[in-house]
Simulated scan of single mutants.
Amino acid sequence: MTGERTGDPERHETAAERADRRWTETLQEVRVAQTGAQILFGFLLSVAFTPRFQTLSRPVEMLYVVAVALGALATGTLIAPVAYHRLLAGRHLKPELVDAVGRLVSVGVVLLALAVNLSVLLLLLVATDNWLAWLVTSLITLWFTVCWLVLPVLLLRSGGRRAS
């Protein structure tokens, strides 16, 4: 029954209300990630039209191709919730929609992190052409991993202990 109160007893919401709330929260998350992915992807597309692009070594050129591909994949994945919603709206599948889109957003964020890191590496290799590019990119990758994965997992674990 959609009117039956379920889930978190502190919220006093029905399954439908919970799905609506989760959908709204997901959309807010997607807006942030989508914007970053689109800006990065636009920047990457413009790089090929600069005079300096013609002077890139083959390995750096291949790095660029991978960064563009990851940027495109991240952008497409983070825009996919719009298509899901258009196709599934009004079909009483909101909980399933929220779960599927949540998985898509997770994949999109990983693709975005990879695209950002490869873009930083690309930029630093072109700007410095030395080992410092690899060191800085490694540190940024570590920082993303800590901020986007390790800290949330630690919070989840500590919250789980408190709830027990």
Rank of each mutant, 00 (worst) to 15 (best):
V32P: 02
A72P: 07
V47R: 12
Q38S: 08
F53E: 08
L45S: 14
V47N: 12
A33G: 03
T35C: 11
V30I: 10
V66N: 10
S57C: 04
G71Q: 00
R31H: 11
R52T: 10
G71C: 00
L63D: 13
P51E: 13
L56G: 07
L56R: 06
A80T: 06
Q34D: 11
G36M: 03
T77N: 06
L78C: 01
S46H: 13
L40I: 10
Q54L: 09
A80W: 04
V68Q: 05
G71D: 00
T50N: 09
A83M: 07
T50V: 11
G71Y: 00
L63H: 14
M62D: 14
V65K: 14
Y84A: 02
F49V: 12
E61I: 05
E29M: 09
G76Q: 01
V60F: 08
S46V: 12
Q38P: 04
P81E: 01
V30Y: 00
V66I: 15
I39C: 09
G42D: 15
F41C: 12
V32S: 03
I79K: 00
V68T: 10
A80Y: 08
V68M: 11
A69D: 05
R58P: 07
A48F: 12
F41T: 11
A74R: 00
P59N: 14
A33F: 10
Q34V: 01
V82L: 09
V32Y: 02
V65R: 15
P59F: 11
I79G: 00
A33T: 04
V82T: 11
E29I: 03
S57N: 06
P51L: 08
S57Y: 03
A74F: 00
R31S: 08
V32K: 01
L70K: 02
G71M: 00
A83S: 09
G76S: 05
R58I: 14
R58H: 11
P59C: 13
L40R: 02
Y64D: 12
L45P: 08
L40Q: 08
Q28M: 10
M62K: 15
L73E: 07
A72C: 15
Y84K: 02
M62T: 15
V30H: 00
Y64K: 10
V65E: 12
E61F: 11
Y84G: 02
T35I: 05
T35D: 03
R31E: 08
V82N: 04
A80N: 05
